[in-house]
């Protein structure tokens, strides 16, 4: 190997190392303070390049309406688990599912609050649109509930279980079938194994 070739290889390797170091610094560097809770989280395509982000797993309905499909999306990195949970849920509620997948949460449903207890039980408080806009059916309801439960637990290891509240109160069910009175653990039996980017 000539001296020139060796030198080029050395410079190339150095450049790769610098790039890796930079991307690690971006992932774990000090996060920017959130500018406002209600600010919608942008999808990967429109995210400003300088914003630190994490990759969250969101869940949408499969084209045949039978299962949940995990979809990876970048969401802004937050300071705390609670703030990160809000970011993930806002993305889950507002993101348009990539075709041909379908949405399983009634349009207009908003996140009212999100908090996590010391035991790792998270509470997701949704607006009543999740009830009033729900089309019914036990499978539909299972998909709605577990898209929320799974998206929180898949991305936040600190959360073990999720309880859904509606308009700030404990709810029996969303559409008359699935028990919401207790926190629910992640259920992967409803998830199709195909992961779409």
């Amino acid at each position: 190997m000539s001296m020139k070739t060796w030198w080029l290889a050395f410079v190339g390797a150095l450049a790769v190392l610098v790039l890796i170091a930079l991307s690690i610094a971006r992932m774990y560097g000090p996060a920017r303070p959130a500018t406002g809770e209600e600010a919608p989280v942008a999808g990967a395509s429109s995210a400003p390049k300088e914003t630190a982000h994490i990759t969250a797993t969101l869940f949408f309905g499969s084209p045949d309406g039978q299962t949940l499909v995990p979809v990876r999306r970048d969401v802004a990195l937050a300071d705390t688990v609670v703030e990160q949970g809000r970011q993930i849920l806002n993305a889950q509620l507002s993101e348009v599912p990539p075709a041909p997948n379908v949405s399983v949460i009634p349009a207009g449903t908003k996140l009212r609050a999100f908090y996590v207890t010391e035991r790792g039980d998270a509470f997701v408080d949704l607006s009543s649109d999740v009830v009033t806009g729900h089309p019914g059916g036990s499978l539909n309801e299972l998909l709605t509930v577990y898209s929320i439960v799974n998206s929180v637990t898949a991305t936040l290891p600190a959360v073990r279980r999720v309880q859904i509240l509606v308009d700030g109160k404990e709810a029996d069910t969303i559409a008359g079938h699935v028990d919401l009175r207790r926190p629910l653990s992640r259920d992967d039996s409803l998830v199709r194994d195909a992961d779409e980017k």
């Binding site: 089309p135 036990s138 079938h177």
Partner: peptide, 25 residues
């Protein structure tokens, strides 16, 4: 007894459900 609904009009067929208890419950 229930009748099901789906966002996907092609979805069809009967289903039977029974109780699953959360591991901690």
């Amino acid at each position: 007894l229930h009748v099901n609904g789906s966002r996907v009009p092609d979805q069809s067929g009967a289903e039977v459900l029974h109780l699953q208890l959360d591991r901690e419950t």
